[in-house]
């Protein structure tokens, strides 16, 4: 039972680092990497709990997350590329035209 605790702790640390990164960094690529970090922290938690309960659902969910993350990376990177080409900047604060 206790063997799962370190994984959950690690997962929480990774998630927190990812969340702080998303909130504080301006570079779109870094923000993106932080999002990936949060997704992977979630995967870690899913796998750990699946192991604890001897249940494969969590592991399958982890695969789904990976697939979705891969698709997201494709679209997200393409958007970041386009923004960078037109504005010569990868800062998320510069792309703030859509507002009140």
């Amino acid at each position: 039972m206790d063997s799962v605790t370190p994984f959950i702790v690690l997962s929480s640390i990774l998630f927190t680092i990812g969340a702080i990164g998303v909130l504080t960094r301006r570079n779109a690529i870094v923000v993106f990497m932080c999002v990936e970090l949060m997704l992977n922290a979630c995967n870690l938690a899913l796998v750990a709990f699946a192991h604890q309960y001897g249940n494969l659902d969590g592991q399958i969910a982890a695969f789904f997350v990976m697939v979705v993350a891969a698709a997201e990376v494709v679209v997200g990177l393409a958007i970041i590329m386009t923004i960078f080409r037109t504005r010569r900047s990868a800062s998320v604060d510069d792309a703030s035209l859509l507002k009140y």
Binding site: V22, T24, V31, V92, D93, L97, L98, K99, Y100
Partner: peptide
């Protein structure tokens, strides 16, 4: 309230969090 829609992605992320 529309002032909340300031266009900064990071502030949206903060409100989601």
């Amino acid at each position: 309230t529309r002032r909340a829609q300031n266009g900064y992605v990071r502030s949206y992320a903060l409100s989601v969090l």
